[in-house]
Amino acid sequence: MTIQFKALPTEDVRALQRGAPDAYGRTPERQISDGDGVPCRHCLRNVAAGDAYLVLAYRPFPELQPYAETGPIFLHAEECERTAGGEMIPEMLESSDYIVRGYGKDDRIVYGSGGVIPTQAIAARAGALFERDDIAYVHVRSARNNCYQCRIERA
């Protein structure tokens, strides 16, 4: 099974970088990176020390429903290039493990699909989940804080 790691869409990111409201209707907060653990969900790289970044509430689902988790994410404050994606683990995934969880076509969690997976095994786990007909896409989330990292789709 071929997979593809997907970053946030550029048009959504550009709007946020220009001050559009986040998922809670608030203006994204601007911070300066210390270079440690500030993963941009658009280029899928860490924000370098001294560079500005945005902190905002993000809901990676098309509409409100009970399973539409909303949480904090980071983005470069200035324009960055969206990653082309692909099946390689994104540079920003530096932790030892992450939550990998499947969602159905209805954008709801598929029970029994989630688990804390070692980083090197994320692609294999996603591939195994995509062998199931009830999995439409997969999220990678922080194993410590449940923050959304990126989405994985069938290629």
Rank of each mutant, 00 (worst) to 15 (best):
G114F: 05
G104H: 05
I89Q: 13
Y137H: 05
S142E: 01
C150I: 06
D133W: 11
E79N: 07
A49V: 08
I117M: 09
G19L: 12
A155E: 05
P21A: 02
Q65D: 01
D97Q: 10
L16C: 06
L44T: 09
Q4N: 14
A136D: 15
R101E: 15
R101S: 01
V138M: 15
C147M: 04
E91L: 08
N46I: 10
Q17F: 08
S95I: 07
T2S: 11
Q149I: 08
D133H: 10
G127M: 10
G112Y: 00
D22Y: 01
D97R: 12
N145R: 07
Y148F: 14
V55W: 02
M1F: 06
Q17T: 10
K105L: 02
I122P: 05
N46Y: 10
T83K: 03
I99E: 01
Y58H: 01
P62E: 10
I3N: 03
V55I: 07
A121H: 12
E78A: 14
P28L: 11
I3P: 08
V100D: 09
K6F: 05
V13C: 04
R41F: 01
V110Q: 07
R82H: 06
G112L: 00
E29V: 05
L8E: 07
E91Q: 14
C80H: 14
C40Y: 03
K105I: 12
G127Y: 02
A77I: 13
A20F: 08
C43P: 01
E29K: 01
F74K: 10
F130M: 13
E79G: 05
I99T: 04
N145C: 01
M88A: 13
I122H: 02
Q65I: 00
A77T: 11
R82V: 13
R101G: 04
S95E: 15
A52M: 02
E11D: 14
E153D: 15
I73C: 10
Y58M: 00
L8N: 00
R26E: 14
A128K: 06
L54Q: 07
C150L: 13
I109K: 11
Y111F: 02
G127S: 07
A123C: 05
S96W: 12
V47F: 07
V13K: 03
G86S: 14
A49H: 08
G35P: 09
D22G: 09
L44R: 15
E11H: 06
L56D: 10
R18H: 09
V138Y: 12
E63L: 03
Y98K: 01
Q17M: 10
R26W: 11
M1L: 12
